[in-house]
């Protein structure tokens, strides 16, 4: 009889312990808190910094003004992380978009004033997706 009572007592105490843990867990952790997304801003920063590196090149303005996106994309290859798909576009205001369907599509743009021979502002828009 004594052993049986002890068994019941232990079961009761274990149940109280589990219930109290569950109660705290539900009350304290039930509020939905999602961690902020750093991936988007990190990708935007990387793309913008890649363009800034290319701007230092004397030929950058010529590539942009001649709409040479192929060279721009090739030059960015060594500057962008491997896990990011990207495509650069050159345009005045409304740029085209890559022919890709992705919910994670983001973009960053860099404006240039033009060049001595062609004082017309343009923007380079880099689209990124995963």
């Amino acid at each position: 009889m004594i052993k049986s009572k002890k068994g019941i007592s232990k079961t009761f105490e274990a149940t109280v312990a589990v219930l109290s843990m569950l109660t705290v867990f539900i009350i304290y952790f039930s509020a939905k808190q999602t961690l902020p997304d750093f991936e988007t801003i990190n990708r935007e920063m990387k793309a913008f910094n890649s363009i800034k590196v290319l701007v230092e090149s004397n030929d950058f303005r010529q590539w942009v003004l001649s709409n040479d996106t192929q060279t721009l994309n090739t030059k960015m290859l060594s500057l962008m992380p491997n896990d990011i798909n990207y495509e650069a576009f050159v345009c005045s205001v409304d740029c085209g978009k890559p022919n890709v369907t992705s919910e994670s599509m983001i973009s960053v743009s860099y404006i240039i004033a033009g060049d001595v021979k062609d004082v017309r502002p343009r923007q380079v828009v880099v689209y990124m997706w995963s």
Binding site: E13, A14, V16, S20, M21, V24
Partner: peptide, 15 residues
Amino acid sequence: GQVFIILSIIIITVM
């Protein structure tokens, strides 16, 4: 038997 209660208090504190 009380070890369950003590353990639960420790786990709750850690959480």
